[in-house]
Nucleic acid binder design. Structure first.
Lengths: 266, 266
DNA sequence: GCTAATATGATTGATATTGAGCGAATTAGG
DNA sequence: CCTAATTCGCTCAATATCAATCATATTAGC
């Protein structure tokens, strides 16, 4: 990744979230600490950011409303490192030329960073993801029709007839509200319905979920565990539950090394 | 590959993505490093691109990557003042609670600024317009499904069944490539088709066009003049042609001219 | 067919960017 | 208040990129 690209990434993120930790930026840019610090020094010299110990913040504390509202931004701040890990693993599963679906979500949102140099045909119902991919990548972007809901940055349509019925993808990536023995679960009926619709257009379903999803509950079942082809999660996921999921025929990818897992657990 | 071919390739790519690495361009142009660097030096001398170490970027230096490419930005720069005038007049026609359609275009793009405090239901096939309205206003935004074309920031779908078939609006705003005696004319068949589809969902059609549209020509007829309810243009439009348009039953609003303003008020 | 002008390709020295190591400064916890 | 851990800033070597020069190929005009 080159200087300008890193700067762009940094500025976009800091404008969206107001504050970023250096560790996060290291993970996001995949650059060495020295390089990143040089970038931060230059950006501060330009007056674009303010450096504080352990992180940076935007020069304008009261940042203007972004596309997605603060609600999704706070959710992104939670467990950002874990989510970035699984998102990167998900992005690595894609091969140039493929058609994929990316469902809106706070975890899938990180995938856009890692698809910057990919060459895919991407259907997404997330306005922020579409925006970032259009601005920073050469991927072909397809949107479903519908209304844009600011809170989650998601495009939802109450109607059945839709351009996505003419779309087909080899992989669909989605995060979720919770994973239970009953299957993949959402909290919002509209969101669940949208995901069901997208599901019908994809061959294999890949669910990406940090460990916090395993002790959550929801009301709307999107699909049973058997529909899931691959589950990507991080090392702090509860092992017994993962075994149960494996017994349903789901391939489970656990990202993050052992030391990192024990450190976060300790 | 000839020199101008390479230039065209380079400019197209950099407009679409904002940043390109020299290595990428070497692979794309299949030219020698020396030749490519000479091209880049010339393009920089013309002010078309900006060179940085390791790559090039669009001339828009510090701004975040634009959604719509430079091609539409250049068009926006042309006659920007006139376009702003007619766009403001168009926005003033909207009343809170209404449902409207805004077609993608360099002139309609200015409408978003003046709809910031409106409270409308807005269907638009322009990604940049949607983005701006979502970020700065409380209007409800609806998008048609389809692929996002970076060059014009427009969402186009080759399919007929679409969420917009369930949408209906009291007003549709569109600019165009040219206005002739044959009617409203576009240059690009895909764009013309998209506008025809949107047209069927709106009661009254309002065309906004600065005076430069009157001496242009195109190939694709979108609709006859009789379909137009109101034409908004600026004071430098050719009066004889405006009379001809009026004779077709079109209401003509001329903005930016005192005499014209008092006439429309009367 | 010849010459001049322009475009292209290769080489080399100069410059910029990057990553790793180490000591100093800052923060958190007891 | 003190210690441990993290974060920061600096220097140095390695790598990648740039700019300039010269040689070669192509094209246009006579």
């Amino acid at each position: 990744m080159h200087e300008w690209e890193r700067w762009q990434l940094i500025l976009r993120q800091v404008r969206a979230r107001g504050f970023l930790r250096v560790r996060e930026l290291l993970a996001a840019t995949e650059a060495s600490p020295a390089t990143l610090r040089r970038d931060l020094a230059k950006l501060e010299g330009m007056g674009q950011i303010r450096r504080v110990h352990g992180g940076i913040q935007g020069v304008d504390a009261t940042a203007p409303a972004q596309i997605a509202s603060r609600s999704i931004d706070v959710r992104q701040a939670l467990n950002a490192d874990r989510k970035r890990l699984v998102a990167k693993a998900a992005a690595d599963l894609c091969h140039d030329g493929e058609s994929i679906i990316i469902n809106a979500g706070s975890t899938t949102g990180f995938m856009a960073e890692y698809l910057r140099h990919a060459n895919l045909q991407i259907l997404t119902n997330s306005f922020p993801i579409a925006h970032e991919l259009i601005a920073t990548s050469a991927n072909r972007i397809v949107l479903p029709g519908g209304e844009v809901y600011r809170d989650q940055g998601i495009i939802l349509s109450p109607f059945e007839e839709d351009a996505i019925q003419s779309f087909t993808a080899s992989k669909m990536f989605m995060s979720c509200y919770a994973i239970t023995a009953m299957g993949i679960v959402e909290d919002d009926p509209l969101v669940a319905r949208a995901e069901t619709k997208l599901l019908s257009r994809a061959e294999t379903l890949i669910v990406i979920a940090d460990a916090t999803k395993f002790d959550a509950r929801g009301s709307m079942i999107v699909c049973p565990l058997g529909r899931v082809h691959t589950l990507i999660t991080d090392a702090s996921a509860p092992e017994p539950f993962l075994d149960q999921i494996r017994s349903e025929g789901v391939r489970v990818l656990v990202v993050g090394d052992e030391r990192a897992a024990s450190r976060t657990a300790a």
